[in-house]
Design a protein around this nucleic acid. Structure first.
Lengths: 63, 63
DNA sequence: TTAAAATGTAAAAAGTATTTGACATTTAAT
DNA sequence: ATTAAATGTCAAATACTTTTTACATTTTAA
């Protein structure tokens, strides 16, 4: 599963830590997901999409 | 997290077991998710959306 | 109304996500 | 060049998802 987190996060001018706080998870979690270490839970995927002003289907690329 | 699985599954004329096979998970997993026992992994959410001919954002209701 | 199919449920085990704390490396700004 | 901020990474612990096996209940259809 690929994603467009970095791209959209930078567009929004947010650091990994800021996204983490807004999503109420740790910075390491955001970092790991952004770098494809593992997939987020569905709930976190929705939270990230909301924070990055997009949808789950646009934020994550199912391949 | 609510979902529209039952609704879309019935529309597609599929049983839980058929959806399970198409998603390559157990019938019990589909049953549990459909009944809000827990959320699927993001990967499974995408697989279910594909099988039910919809999107993750339409299939699951983030509340 | 009986049989078959579908659905609901439970417990234990295995697999996966997340946290915390810590430290290293890279990037950005001064 | 130096500092601060941001990012990358690791290991151990905790929490959550999924599987398997098994059985009970409900629904569907003959």
């Amino acid at each position: 599963m690929k994603n467009r987190i970095r791209e959209l996060r930078k567009s929004a001018g947010l650091s990994q830590e800021e996204v983490a706080k807004l999503c109420k998870v740790s910075r390491q979690t955001i970092n790991a997901i952004e770098n494809d270490k593992y997939d987020p839970t569905l709930q976190l995927a929705f939270n990230m999409a909301t924070v990055l002003d997009t949808t789950v289907d646009e934020l994550f690329i199912n391949k």
